[in-house]
Amino acid sequence: MSATTINPSVRRAQAGTTEPAWVRYSLIGLALTFMFFFLVLPLAAVFTEALRKGLEAYWDALQEPDAWSAIRLTFITALVAVPLNLVFGIAAAWAIAKYEFRGKAFLTTLVDLPFSVSPVVAGLIYVLMFGAQGWFGPWLQAHDIKIIFAVPGIVLATVFVTFPFIARELIPLMQAQGNDEEQAAIVLGATGWQTFWYVTLPNIKWGLIYGVILCNARAMGEFGAVSVVSGHIRGQTNTMPLHVEILYNEYQSVAAFAVASLLALLALVTLVLKSFVEWRHARELNAAAELPPERPHA
C-alpha cells in the first residue's frame, strides 16, 4: 500500500534528473549492442577460432617448440622491462610530485612522450642507433654484440613503449597525497629510505600495482615496435604476438588463434586484477574517510 503511494512522488522528484523509461532502455540497449559487436564478439572469436578443430589441435599448436620459445621470450622481455620501468616510475614520481623545480611541466610532458609515438617509430629509432648502419652499428659489430634482430633490441623497444605506464599512475597519486606525512617522518628522525618504505609505499601501493599490471599487459602484447627490431627469427627472436603474425600469414589459423588465445587470457586476467585493485583501493579510501580522526586505526 505504502509503496504505491510513495512511488509516484518519488518518480516525479526523479523526473528532473533522469529520462523516461523508454529512453533509458533504448540507450542501454544501444550501448550494449555496440559493446557486444566491438568487444565481446572479437574476444569470443579468438577462442572459437582456436578451438575450431577441437581441443587436440589446440593443445598440439601450443606444444610446438617455436610457440614455447615465443612464450619464454615474451616472459623474459616483460621480466626485464617491467622492473626497469617500475624503478624509473618511482624515481620520476618522487622527483616530480614531491618537489617544485623549473621545467617540471616540460619534464612531465617528456615522460608522456612515448605514449604518443607510433610503435613503428619507436622500433625504428633503435634500428638507427644500434642497427648495422646505425650510430653504434660498426662498434657493436666489431665487438660481436647483437642488439637489433636479437633479444636486447626487443627488450629496449618494449621498455620504450611501456616507459610512462607506472610513472603516469604514481605522479598524480603522490601529488594528491602531498608531503606532510613524509616530512613528519623525516622530522621524527626516519632516514629517507625508511620514509619511503614505511610511509610513502603503503600510500601508493595500489596505484603502483595498478601501473605494474597495465605495464606488464602492454609489455607482453607489444607488436609494432618489437616487430621492427626483431627480425622475426623463428624460435629465437619471436615474441608471442610476432609468432601469432607468422602463423597467421602462413594460413595456420588454428595455431595462430591458439597462441592468440593465451594472450587473450592474459588480457582477461589483467582486467580482473585491475578491477580487483580498483575495488580494494576504493575500499581503503572509504575506510580511511570513515575513520574518526581522534581514534586512528591501530
Binding site: V46, M220, F223, P241, A267
Partner: peptide, 12 residues
C-alpha cells in the same frame, strides 16, 4: 570490459 582494448594485444 571497456578496458579490453588496452589489455588485449593489438595483433590479437
Amino acid at each position: 570490459l571497456v578496458d579490453l582494448p588496452f589489455a588485449l594485444p593489438t595483433a590479437v
